[in-house]
Design a protein around this nucleic acid. Structure first.
Length: 718
DNA sequence: CATACGTAGG
């Protein structure tokens, strides 16, 4: 029942009704009251008008709020503040907010706070700092709202100074200020300081958010157990759990890769009110995606009650993290828009990286165009970083460079992406030059930077330099080398034929070499004809991955190089006994937005006759130029026309031939292969590039090969 | 009458 006071004056009743419409976001009754108000003889007051602006703002109608504001005869600072808040919530442009703010004749602390919080949400930290300094210049007293917004906008930088300011001005009584200090310390990697703030608050000064912040902090520092026990303590102390608590705890499980723990916790949530919650849902989707359980992620996604933008973004990101589901990721991107959501910067980052996996430059280009038409609430930097990776992975290194050079602002990830692009394309010198530039510009390298740097050194044969960087990781930058870095270092040594040093490093490293490292060692042994170590590497690799067909192939190839045909046969038998199937190789090329796929000995493509004719002709020219088919790659024992034909019909040759006959003279082409390129094809395409004068890029499962005028960018290292 | 902290992603 409505409990309106009966004896009060009509005006009081009117105000009570209006307030109930505002808090209940009841646009229909509110608008009726508005009509009544205009028609009545009640004197129009700024106070009541402000309430109507608030009503329309709460009901998400910016245009009505604007319209009504313009009709207020004498707007006061409250009127402006309410309108400013409406704009902060419902519009995206930072400039228009500032313009509105500048129209306020005499802005008060709340005006400043409202704009500051909008800056914090939008990530415009420079604007926030400027505005904060302006406040202090005007001698306006800051309060807890001011500082929590400013500190939050800075993403942790300068947290110690602000902590000092908080203490001297006595603003530590505000819980939110303590909370944002904890988050900031955690973001800066200062877990101890965050804990100290949390301890200092004590249970009486904490709220639920304080606990949530601390759980998030433990997650950020890969302290899954501490996060879990803090959660239990929180429950014990009688604090209410909310969706943020649960989402943060799930994120902590994800950060320590504790899938079991996360899934167990998920099971406990089923049949609670949080089961279909969107915050919890997005954390679960992320947990399952990062554990390569994409089907479980999808299941959670389908069960979320009202998926919001974050949920959609997480799902798209999940698909592109699980590369083989990238197609689904793009599909999801389209469905999201059909469901009425406007993609934000994060959506584009995820969708663009799906295009990287698919090697689809045309879809990537489309997304690029679309992204450029969109005004993002936060900076473009992440989108540009994703575009750099996408264009390099799609073989369009020039476009990646264009993006990089035109970026108004770059961060470490930008450099990492561009350096990785150069390294993957075999442009070791360019990669290392950019690395130097990065250091000169005082961008700190990360562990990801060093993976590209080390592989660039390996491909350019810079052994000493590479080892120097490897050692500098820990000594200069305090970055502990991980499995991948050791694998790169092994690769570096082994490619140069320094097998003793490689073995020494393997024996002294703090963990076991991973599959990538053993594979690199095996590959190098094959190139250098090191039977003994190669056999050991193959053994170790097959212990870890008994069904790695490429490992058998490389080993049998190594034996074949040495003419050890009995061993070749026994490797093949072993493979057969274990039921290992060679993954069928396939190559594809995208022309005019259509993907053409070829497998070995293909007969299905409509133009296959022309393809074979072209190959027959060019092989004759190649032979005249000195090409000798390398039958070891045909799995054929002796010289035979059959083996030659089998080579001639490898999928990458078919795709290259099709690309050449379907494009204009001089146009570069890109072919993608699901496995590593075959050695004979590698030699053959070198010849083809010289004879046809074309630039042919092949992206295989491992790296890029850019063939130009008879040589390959990989320098025959692969 | 209005404003803050915490969930996804690069």
């Amino acid at each position: 029942m409505n409990q309106f006071p009966l004896i009060n004056s009509p005006l009081q009743t009117f105000r009570a009704l209006l307030k109930s419409c505002i808090s209940g976001r009841n646009l229909v009754s509110g608008a009726a009251l508005h009509a009544l108000y205009i028609k009545s003889f009640v004197p129009q007051s700024t106070y009541v008008s402000n309430h109507f602006v608030l009503l329309y703002s709460n009901c998400n109608s910016l245009s009505l709020a604007n319209q009504l504001f313009d009709e207020i005869p004498h707007p006061n600072v409250f009127s402006y503040n309410v309108l400013l808040n409406a704009h902060a919530r419902l519009s995206t442009s930072g400039d228009s907010l500032t313009a509105l703010f500048r129209r306020i004749p005499d802005p008060d602390v709340v005006s400043y706070n409202t704009l500051l919080s909008a800056f914090a949400v939008g990530g415009w930290s420079d604007n926030a700092v400027d505005l904060f300094n302006e406040m202090r210049k005007r001698d306006l007293d800051c309060d807890g709202f001011t500082l929590s917004s400013v500190i939050s906008s800075l993403n942790g930088s300068g947290v110690e100074q602000f902590h000092g300011l908080v203490m001297v001005s006595g603003l530590d009584v505000y819980v939110s200020v303590g909370n944002v200090l904890m988050s900031s310390y955690s973001k800066m990697g200062m877990l101890m300081e965050a804990e100290r703030v949390f301890e200092g608050m004590g249970n009486e000064k904490r709220d639920g958010v304080s606990w949530n912040c601390m759980i998030v902090a433990y997650g950020q520092h890969r302290e899954g157990l501490k996060a879990l026990s803090l959660f239990q303590e929180m429950v014990h102390s009688g604090f209410d759990i909310d969706m943020f608590t649960l989402a943060s705890l799930l994120t902590a499980f994800t950060s320590v890769k504790d899938i079991r723990g996360g899934a167990q916790f998920h099971a406990q949530l089923i049949k609670t009110s949080f089961e279909r919650n969107s915050h919890v849902g997005s954390s679960l989707i992320d947990l399952y995606s990062k554990s390569r359980e994409i089907l479980n992620a999808k299941k959670v996604f389908e069960e979320v009650n009202e998926p919001d933008l974050v949920v959609w973004n997480t799902m798209i990101s999940g698909y592109s993290l699980n590369g083989e589901f990238s197609e689904e990721g793009l599909h999801c991107f389209i469905q999201m828009q059909r469901a009425g959501f406007k993609p934000d910067d994060c959506t584009f980052v995820c969708a663009i990286s799906a295009c990287s996996n698919l090697s689809s430059p045309s879809q990537g280009q489309q997304l690029h165009n679309l992204a450029m038409k969109t005004k993002f609430p936060s900076s473009l930097i992440a989108v540009n970083n994703a575009l750099i990776s996408m264009y390099s992975k799609c073989g369009k290194l020039n476009d990646a460079e264009k993006i990089f050079s035109r970026m108004p602002e770059r961060n470490t990830v930008s450099f990492n992406s561009m350096i990785a692009g150069y390294a993957q394309h075999g442009l070791g010198n360019e990669a290392l030059d950019l690395f130097q530039e990065m250091l000169e510009l005082k961008n700190s390298p990360t562990s990801i930077t060093f993976i590209s740097v080390l592989s660039a050194c390996a491909h350019t044969g810079r052994i000493d330099e590479g080892l120097g960087y490897f050692n500098s990781m820990k000594n200069i930058y305090g970055i502990e080398p991980e499995e991948e870095h050791y694998s790169c270092a092994i690769d570096l040594l082994a490619r140069a034929g320094m097998f003793l040093e490689a073995e020494e490093l393997i024996n002294s490293m703090p963990f076991d070499l991973d599959t990538i490292g053993w594979a690199a060692l095996l590959g190098a042994c094959r190139t250098h004809g090191n039977l003994k170590l190669g056999a050991k590497a193959a053994e170790e690799l097959l212990k870890l991955e008994p069904s790695n067909a490429a490992a058998y192939a490389m080993l049998s190839n190594l034996y074949a190089t040495k003419g050890k045909w009995d061993e070749v046969a026994s490797v093949r038998k072993l493979m057969k006994d274990r039921g290992v199937q060679k993954k069928p190789g396939c190559s594809w090329i995208e022309l005019n937005r259509k993907v053409h796929i070829f497998v070995a000995d293909d007969v299905s493509h409509p133009k296959i006759k022309e393809v074979y004719m072209f190959l027959e002709e060019i092989v004759e020219k190649m032979k005249a130029a000195g090409y000798v088919p390398d039958l070891r790659w045909a799995m054929a024992k002796d010289d035979s026309r059959e083996g030659e034909l089998r080579l001639e019909h490898h999928s990458e040759k078919l795709a290259v031939a099709f690309g050449l006959i379907s494009t204009r003279d001089g146009e570069p082409i890109l072919v993608v292969k699901n496995l590593r390129i075959c050695g004979d094809c590698h030699t053959a395409i070198k010849f083809i590039s010289r004879i046809t004068g074309r630039e042919i890029t092949v992206r295989d499962a491992h790296r890029y090969h850019c063939f130009r005028e008879g040589s390959c960018s990989c320098g025959d290292y692969w």
